[in-house]
């Protein structure tokens, strides 16, 4: 059991590059963060900002080639997951670290029933026999709100709706009571009521077993309701980190500010046209030597082009990678 002072998971300086036909792509650039027992870390950021690649890299699931993990350490349970032997890693993955992938259809096998796929980690990691695993699988499927769970264990993934497939993934990730759950956009296909139910389930597990959670999402409403701390990614880097209330009350990075302004609401005035963050996300062919947000930033100045800003503390638990002092009101 983690002692509550040391983080359960400590990611340091993780850098990942893809070698593609059209050249190198620097998808993750020197990313660092930690995670404590019972904590829920929210991860937000633009599409393509490296959220999924970071998580896949840290549990050794990136296809290589084309991916190369250039540097970094991932400390978990006394191991560095980037250098640990394959068997140890396999034993940790799926048992001590649960993972919900962003795209359920590419990670669920279409030729096996849903039941078979939920039972697999139970039999492999928990040593359950077939009938115990079946019972537990039905229980898990029921927990994530799928009606008629026992009957539906016999179905194949294509017979489930988009949101039901996502919930199967969640059930599989929770099957072995992991110490760390990494959930990559786990509720994108879920409506608010079922999403609320899943969030309650996750909160309960966190309180009961001290499970620590990384929750990647573009839904700032979910982040506001469930996260303790948030990291904001842009261009393969962590550009801001803060406790959740602080991030919403006092966002400092120009990207974070723009992001918070784009959200439509069910309350208040309906906007005639939705706000977008103008410009295109960067395609990094080499390690960034200038601020990655500069081309879209309203506050850029000379230094931003000359030097990629490093993360600096600006408050309790609040840091950001930006040269702008943030004091001048933004427009």
């Amino acid at each position: 059991m983690p002692d509550g002072v040391l983080p359960v998971l400590d990611v340091r300086d993780l850098t990942t590059v893809f070698h593609t036909r059209s050249g190198d792509l620097h998808a993750v650039n020197s990313v660092s963060f930690d995670l404590h027992a019972g904590e829920l870390l929210g991860v937000v950021g633009e599409s393509g900002s490296g959220k999924s690649v970071t998580m896949m890299a840290l549990i050794g699931l990136l296809p290589s080639p084309p991916a190369v993990v250039r540097s970094g350490q991932v400390l978990f349970g006394g191991h560095d997951l980037l250098t640990v032997d394959k068997d140890t890693l396999r034993a940790i993955r799926g048992k001590r670290i649960g993972f919900v992938f962003q795209d359920p259809m590419t990670s669920l096998n279409p030729v096996f029933t849903v039941g078979f796929q939920i039972m697999e980690p139970l039999r492999k990691h928990m040593g359950l026999n077939k009938s115990a695993a079946w019972t537990r699988a039905a229980e898990l499927l029921h927990l994530v709100g799928i009606p008629d769970a026992t009957q539906r264990l016999k179905d194949y993934p294509h017979q489930f709706s988009g949101g039901m497939r996502q919930r199967v993934m969640i059930a599989m990730a929770l099957a072995c009571d992991p110490e760390v759950l990494i959930a990559d956009e786990p509720t994108t296909a879920l409506d608010v009521t079922i999403q609320a139910q899943i969030l309650e389930l996750i909160k309960a597990l966190r309180e009961k077993s001290g499970m620590a959670i990384i929750w990647i999402t573009h839904d700032l409403g979910v982040i506001a309701g469930i996260a303790d701390r948030v990291i904001v990614m842009y261009g393969g880097q962590v550009v801001e980190q803060a406790p959740v209330a602080e991030l919403f009350a006092n966002p400092r990075h120009p990207y974070t500010r723009a992001l918070l302004k784009t959200v439509p609401s069910v309350h208040g005035q309906r906007a005639a046209r939705l706000k977008v963050i103008e410009g295109q996300p960067p395609i990094l062919r080499s390690a960034p030597d200038a601020c990655v947000f500069l081309p879209r930033c309203a506050h850029g100045f000379g230094r931003c082009a000359a030097e990629n800003p490093q993360r600096r503390a600006v408050g309790v638990g609040h840091d950001l990678a930006c040269h702008w002092d943030g004091e001048t009101e933004d427009g």
Binding site: V192, T193, G221, A224, G225, F248, A249, L260
Partner: peptide, 11 residues
Amino acid sequence: LLSAVPEPDPV
């Protein structure tokens, strides 16, 4: 349904 929509503001 409407009452369950998450609010993008922790307060």
